[in-house]
Structures are given as structure tokens and as C-alpha cells.
Nucleic acid binder design. Structure first.
Length: 479
RNA sequence: CUGGGUGUGGCGCAGUUUGGUAGCGUGCUUGAAUGGGGUUCAAGAGGCCGGAGGUUCAAGUCCUCUCACCCAGACCA
């Protein structure tokens, strides 16, 4: 952020102001810049660094579970995209087409991948022959393109970075197990590392992925009560395998179709971090993905000893495994305080002449802004603990927000009262009929977020049609 | 795609009603002092007013077209 820029908007309940607060933060914390390319953003070094940490943590987990990274082509020939009917219907309206190579018009146009199921399937058809070839556990880190009509940084851009895992299994059970395992990897990552509480659940037919048999999702709640779908994991059955003629000889010497999964998590999660933890002073980052975990600010450092001590402390903290920045630039202390708060740095360490006399320093956590006096020689052991406390506070605060904005409705009157009152999660029973889901959308403006894995029995009947209920659904308004 | 809004130094904006020498704040550069919550003073640089066309002696301002972005909806994993 440039000197003198200030956050103009504070968090409020009004959608419009909240949107402004959000776009303000992504710019002023230097996460993204707008691009002259339609619907696209520039991910700046600071924003990209957050993604790198997300990438590093998830990739290690994927590998631990036996997945391998690959690269698929960026282009999909039209005929390939059309192999699976539901899939192409879902994606055709939002793909970008390449029609020319150089000056020549292509005989078959190519779409820029919006997702890579068909590319993986095309490849799997070549390499899967025997049950001994299974499972295939592949993952790809890449960007994909979806020609969205309206865009917003991180939440919905025409091109975005993500990771897409694509696996093939011998049996349905094994594939379903994989689908659920990867959902839990995402959920544990969101809750444990990002301090974002999420609902784990299954999507309704209306909301599930194009071509999938089942879609699992993690749904997080933002400050404003809206839902953010933060990661999805799909089970495809053998639908694509049949469409792409992927067959293998099984243990009984019979030809069989493998069962497929895919799962993805994108830079959208960074938008989730902003809208889950951010406050009126800017971004608030969870320590696991903060590019800088501790910033050291020497005060009045032209005086003797201050800068030297600050450098010493920096080396000591780095040796303890923390990501530390020392800002010895000439800006005023007040300026730096605000700057690093805007950027969401979890801990600030102030070292000045006064501290040197006492052999201590001031440590200020980003969330509470409480000024703590810590002896200089104990910093390396105290700061990791402070980071952990901070992470727990972020989680607790986010969870509290979700609970405060989660309601239960047993009747249509209650549903409409909720919808009129504002945003949040609404739990109801449901008969599983599409008509009732449609009616929720029409009358209350709510869409189903998920059918939580942790089910509750709220009542006996669907509040919309009064028929016997089959499942509990969480409804809301989504990003 | 529909409706509304906005495009003027890096950023934020005024000026457009009623055409007449492009302004303010902030940032940036240089120097000095300051330094524990967005310091102070001084000097300086930086804009064919989103683009194209038109009306006019004269256009940031009026007219036509166009592009981009923002907000709300629709759409969307």
C-alpha cells in the first residue's frame, strides 16, 4: 500500500458496503491488481506468496496419500469435451474457444480448459489396462478459464489458479472412500491451518458438479453471513469411463470400468480467508499461510544499538523457523503499524531504546492488538506459542460468527422470516424433491449449500410441502 | 445478458447544470528535523480529462458511437 492510502470502508451488514470493504482490502493489502484483461486479475507477489503456502501444505498432504503431480494440455478439442453429455452441458456456456492457429482457422475449435476431467480420461484410456494399474492417483496444479459474466477478485475470475486431483479406482467403494478422504483433507486444512470452520456435506442434485454422481463440499460462512463453497470433491461412478471407453481387466479376468473421482481447491480460498478473518484495519492472516508471520519494527533506530538488536532478534527468530521481516525503512512507526495490520501479519514486534534498557520488547498480535511485554531472550520460545493462541482465537471467533448466524426453521413462515431478516445459514428438513428446492429459491432466495454429513433430526416433515422429510439441508446465499 | 453507476497526474476526487488558460488532497522525488499509532517544514516532477467521430471561433464540459471497470440481478461448481 502506498503511504497515505487508508481503508475507506468498514465492515457493515450491508451487502454493498461489504463488497466495497472486500475489494478495498484485496487492493490495499497488495494481494491483486486489476488487469486490463477482461475478468482477470494480476496476483501480486504478496497474494501469490499466500497461494504458495497453501500449495506447499496441500501438496505435501496429497503426496503423503500417494498422489502424483502431472501436467495436462491447456486445450480441449470440442469433440473431446462433448463426450460426456452432462459435463458439456454444464460447462459449454462458460468456456473460451480458440478458433485460429496463426492465420489459419482450425478445423476443430479448441476450448481453454475450464476443468480437466476429459483430458485425464482421454489419457487414462491409454494407460489403464489391468487392475494392477489401479488406482491412478493424479493431481495437477494449474490455472483454468471460465468465461464468467461477472467477476470479483479471488471469488470469481475468468482465469484462476487451482489444484485438481483426478483419480481412478477398481471399485465404487474405493472411489467413494477417496472422495470422502479428500473432502476431509480440505476440511482439516481449512479448519486446522486456515482457522476457517467449514460444514462438510453433500450437494443436492441441483447443485452438484456437471457429470458427477455425488459432489461433496466444504462450505464456510463469511462475515456477512453468505456462504462460500471452498473446496469440492466429486464421485463420478463409471460414467466418464464409459464415455471415454476406459476399461481394465479385473481380478476375475473380466473387463470392467474403473470408478473415478476429482477434487479441487482454488485461489478462491484466499477470498474466504479475507472474508472470514479480515477486520476494519484490513487483512488478518492465519499463521500457516502468512508470507510473513512476524514483523520487527525498530523504533528510533538511528540511535545506538536498536537496529543491531533488531537484526539479532530477526536471526534468532528465523533460526526458530519463523518467517520474519525486519522493516528498517524510513517510514514513521505509526505508518508501519497500519501497513502491517493492513497486510494481516500475525505478530508485530516493536524494539526501541526504552526496551533495550529493560531487555524486553513489545509484541502485538494482529487480532487483539494487545501490547505484550516479552523479555528479548525469551522471544524464540514465546512467539510460536503466541501464534498458536492467535490461530485458536481466529478459529473461535469465526465459529462464533457462524453459530450466531445459523438458524433452524420448521415452517415456511420461519423460512420467510429468516430470508427477510438477512444472511446466514438456515437448517431445515427436506423431502429431497427438486420442486421444494426450486420453491426455496423462488420465494426465499435461498439455495441449498449442502446436506451436512453430520445430520440432525429437526422434525418429521419438509417445511415446504409437508411431506415426510428425508434429510436435513443447510440453505443460504452463496458467493 | 438486463438495470443502475463511474471513467480527469500513481491513488482518491472537484470541475460537466450555464463550453472560454486543467484544479484540490494524498502519494512520488530531493533536503532537513522527527520517530512507542498513519510526523513536520521547504523545494520539485508528474495529466493530450477512457477511446473514436461530430457540433463550435473554442469541448473535460454538448451530441453520436464504442471500450473498460463497479454495484444489483440473472447465470454460475
Amino acid at each position: 500500500m502506498k503511504k497515505g492510502d487508508k481503508l475507506v470502508t468498514e465492515i457493515t451488514a450491508r451487502d454493498e458496503d461489504f463488497a466495497r470493504w472486500y475489494t478495498d482490502i484485496v487492493k490495499k493489502a497488495e494481494l491483486v491488481d486489476y488487469s486490463s484483461v477482461r475478468g482477470c486479475c494480476v496476483l501480486r507477489p504478496y497474494g501469490y506468496a499466500i497461494w504458495e503456502h497453501i500449495q506447499r501444505i496441500l501438496d505435501a498432504e496429497f503426496k503423503r496419500l500417494g498422489h502424483e503431480n502431472v501436467m495436462m494440455p491447456m486445450f480441449i478439442p470440442e469433440s473431446l469435451l462433448q463426450r460426456e453429455k452432462d459435463h458439456v452441458e454444464g460447462f459449454a456456456p462458460e468456456v473460451a474457444w480458440v478458433t485460429h492457429g496463426g492465420d489459419e482457422e482450425l478445423t476443430e475449435r479448441l476450448c481453454v480448459r475450464p476443468t480437466s476431467e476429459v483430458l485425464f480420461c482421454d489419457h487414462y484410456a491409454n494407460i489403464i489396462e489391468s487392475w494392477r494399474d489401479l488406482p491412478k492417483l493424479y493431481n495437477q496444479w494449474c490455472s483454468v478459464v471460465r468465461w464468467e459474466k461477472s467477476t470479483r477478485p479471488f471469488l470469481r475470475t475468468a482465469e484462476f489458479l487451482w489444484q485438481e486431483g483426478h483419480t481412478m479406482h477398481e471399485t465404487a467403494e474405493e472411489a467413494i472412500e477417496e472422495t470422502e478422504r479428500m473432502l476431509n483433507v480440505y476440511a482439516d486444512f481449512a479448519e486446522g491451518q486456515l482457522a476457517m470452520p467449514v460444514l462438510r456435506g453433500e450437494k443436492t442434485d441441483r447443485e452438484k458438479f456437471a457429470g458427477a454422481e455425488r459432489t461433496y463440499t466444504i462450505e464456510a460462512m463469511m462475515h456477512d453471513g453468505k456462504a462460500l463453497q471452498s473446496g469440492t470433491s466429486h464421485y463420478f461412478g463409471d460414467g466418464f469411463a464409459r464415455a471415454f471407453n476406459i476399461q481394465f481387466t479385473d481380478r476375475n479376468n473380466q473387463l470392467a470400468y474403473p470408478h473415478q473421482t476429482s477434487w479441487g481447491l482454488s485461489t478462491r480460498i484466499i477470498g474466504g480467508i479475507i472474508m472470514t478473518h479480515g477486520d476494519d484495519s484490513g487483512l488478518v492472516l492465519p499463521p500457516a499461510v502468512a508470507p510473513i508471520q512476524v514483523v520487527i519494527l525498530p523504533i528510533a533506530f538511528h540511535r545506538g544499538g536498536v537496529l543491531e538488536k533488531a537484526r539479532e532478534v530477526q536471526a534468532q527468530l528465523q533460526a526458530a523457523g519463523l518467517r520474519v521481516k525486519l522493516d528498517d525503512s524510513d517510514a514513521s512507526p505509526g505508518w508501519k503499524f497500519a501497513e502491517y495490520e493492513m497486510k494481516g501479519i500475525p505478530l508485530r514486534v516493536e524494539i526501541g531504546p526504552r526496551d533495550l534498557e529493560q531487555g524486553s520488547c513489545i509484541v502485538v498480535p494482529r487480532d487483539s492488538r494487545e501490547k505484550l511485554s516479552v523479555p528479548l531472550d525469551r522471544l524464540a520460545e514465546v512467539l510460536p506459542q503466541l501464534l498458536e493462541d492467535y490461530r485458536l482465537r481466529l478459529y473461535a471467533r469465526a465459529l462464533q460468527n457462524r453459530e450466531k448466524n445459523t438458524f433452524t426453521a420448521l415452517t415456511m413462515e420461519e423460512i420467510l422470516a429468516f430470508a427477510a431478516a438477512g444472511n446466514g445459514f438456515l437448517k431445515t428438513m427436506w423431502c429431497k424433491e427438486a420442486a421444494c428446492e426450486e420453491q426455496m429459491k423462488e420465494q426465499a432466495g435461498l439455495t441449498s449449500r449442502c446436506m451436512p454429513l453430520a445430520q440432525e433430526q429437526l422434525g418429521e416433515c419438509c417445511p415446504i410441502c409437508q411431506k415426510p422429510a428425508k434429510v436435513m439441508v443447510v440453505w443460504g446465499r452463496a458467493y
